[in-house]
């Protein structure tokens, strides 16, 4: 430290002429009054700043935040319950719709089956009727064919007999042809 100022009297009991501490400054009695005075003022000021302004303000903010959080949680729970209700309603509606669709489909299937059965029965009847008709037609055709065959056979037999120089006796020819045709 500044050695040039050295030589004068010590500044005080606690500081030497060079500006250095003599012993522990903490034990210097000269300064205690000053330190205590300013410390007490400091503590009083800090106390009033805290007690009057800072602490009530922070307490209010913390309480408000706690309230907000509680409200938000309650609101969230409410919304969650609503969402669950909505989901349940949706599920129910879906299940109902599915069941309804199933009954409609079943009904449609049954209707179609019934219609189909009717149509098949009707078609069968028609087919049967047609078959009977056809058989009858075939029988008629066969009968007429046989009749024609007889006529043709009789005419042919008459013609053959005439051609051979015989006298065609229609009755005899007819009976002979009949006998031949019966086998």
């Amino acid at each position: 430290m500044a050695t040039e100022t050295h030589g004068s009297e010590p500044v005080s009991a606690c500081v030497d002429a060079g500006g250095s501490a003599v012993g522990m400054p903490q034990l210097c009695g000269d300064w205690i009054g000053n330190q205590v005075f300013w410390l007490v003022i400091t503590l009083i000021v800090i106390y009033f700043v805290l007690a009057r302004i800072a602490l009530p303000r922070i307490a209010a903010v913390l309480a408000e935040r706690q309230g907000t959080i509680t409200n938000d949680i309650a609101a969230a729970e409410d919304l969650k319950r609503k969402a669950q209700d909505a989901e349940a309603a949706y599920d129910k509606a879906l299940a109902d719709a599915r069941a309804e669709a199933q009954t409609i489909a079943q009904k449609a299937r049954d209707d179609i089956k019934a219609d189909l059965g009717d149509a098949i029965a009707k078609a069968d009847a028609e087919i049967a009727a047609k078959a009977v008709e056809s058989e009858k037609a075939i029988a008629e055709i066969r009968e007429s064919a046989m009749a024609h065959v007889e006529t043709v056979a009789k005419d042919t037999a008459g013609a053959i007999v005439a051609a051979l120089g015989g006298v065609a006796d229609d009755a005899k020819i007819a009976s002979a042809v009949d006998a031949q045709l019966k086998g």
Binding site: C14, G19, S20, A21, M24, P25, Q26, W31, N34, Q35
Partner: peptide, 21 residues
């Protein structure tokens, strides 16, 4: 001078004595 940092000194003027105020 490890203890010099703890010296109490007046801020204004060069009054060597440190009174209460």
């Amino acid at each position: 001078h490890p203890m010099d940092q703890f010296i109490v000194k007046p801020l204004f003027g060069d009054a060597s004595t440190v009174g209460m105020f």
